[in-house]
Design a protein around this nucleic acid. Sequence first.
DNA 1: TCCGTATATCCGGTTATCCGGATATATGCC
DNA 2: GGCATATATCCGGATAACCGGATATACGGA
Lengths: 102, 102
Amino acid sequence: MSRISLEEATLLHQHACRAIADPKRILILYALNEEPSNVTHLSESLQLPQSTVSRHLKQLLNHDLVIADRQGTTVTYSLADTHIIDALNTMRQVVADSLRRQ
Amino acid sequence: MSRISLEEATLLHQHACRAIADPKRILILYALNEEPSNVTHLSESLQLPQSTVSRHLKQLLNHDLVIADRQGTTVTYSLADTHIIDALNTMRQVVADSLRRQ
DNA sequence: TCCGTATATCCGGTTATCCGGATATATGCC
DNA sequence: GGCATATATCCGGATAACCGGATATACGGA
């Protein structure tokens, strides 16, 4: 789990890194970690336009970071793998340490 | 370490997520995890143009993910915090699991 | 001071990303 | 079918990111 090829780096970027490279998507991932939710609810609780939330969820879905479960008219989204939060938390720690060091 | 505000999400994005949102920078981070190195050496071993490597290192430096140590004409870059590799490895695992699941 | 090596920056051009209001589609109920 | 709710997509436009050859700068040694 140490060396990495350009191919695998590209894969990693395509599937995960690119997906978390937006503050609003980070916000959505943490919200879904609290509890599964749907577009309307997320839109209200995060104070973001509905189309924006839907678009971001689509990206997260395409990258397999979330899963969608349709029940009637509402679609409940939830994390596909909570380990993504572990990765984000590790980065939070890195950032926090870095800021404290200054 | 669970809830997060838009402000902190933005901070996290600015400092870490944006920095790793490029395959070549991921490659560079893993290379530096193997051993500290300089622009020329990285440029050769990763088969990337010198200006490209220098530009990416500058971004990583600005985001405090690497540190620079100038000795004469050469500048040795190394990871500021190896935990960033932990975060990347966690994401590799998430991606690998996701691909395997399909 | 002149030269060589190492690094950083400039340049323009291309491509990708994000936005959010407006509109279209999907589903359930009466 | 007609309505209401929930979600997805369309749209034009603004911004940001990346590229790599060419050039400039920094430094040490002769």
